[in-house]
């Protein structure tokens, strides 16, 4: 399960994720991160059953935690199911079912935005 962490300036310099990993013993996969001197955000992937524990500990440490849902928006009206998005997504969010209909596994999305540019029909967008 993916969690989107917003880290404010007062705690941004602390090794928060390492601390939570050590305390909980849960392996956290950092999928994307953007940190600067003032603040930052981090996209992490954690096992579903550990999500509550990780979230509450991070919240205690001053991190705003949101579950990442509906990360990629698929406009079924614009989409023609060509499949241009299939090979360019680093997370393999998109695939075809047996009938060549597009399946969007949005829970895999890491918000990279590559598919937004690659879609010839402007049918994909990323939640900001």
């Amino acid at each position: 399960m993916k969690l989107f962490l917003t880290i404010q300036r007062d705690v941004v310099k602390r090794p928060l994720i390492s601390q939570v990993v050590l305390e909980t013993g849960v392996l956290i996969n950092v999928e994307r991160a953007h940190i600067d001197a003032n603040e930052g955000w981090v996209l992490i992937d954690v096992p579903e059953k550990e999500q509550a524990r990780i979230s509450s500990r991070l919240t205690e440490l001053g991190v705003e935690v949101k579950k990442l849902e509906n990360a990629v928006l698929h406009d079924e009206h614009e989409c023609v199911e060509c499949g241009a998005c299939l090979s360019i997504c680093p997370q393999e969010v998109f695939c075809f079912d047996a009938d060549f209909h597009l399946v969007v596994r949005e829970e895999r999305c890491i918000l990279c935005g590559q598919c937004v540019c690659a879609c010839p029909h402007q049918a994909l967008s990323i939640r900001q």
Partner: peptide
């Protein structure tokens, strides 16, 4: 093994 993408739509061709 390199992944493929189609520019044309097979479901719509069908």
């Amino acid at each position: 093994m390199v992944r493929t993408s189609s520019m044309s739509s097979f479901s719509h061709a069908r």
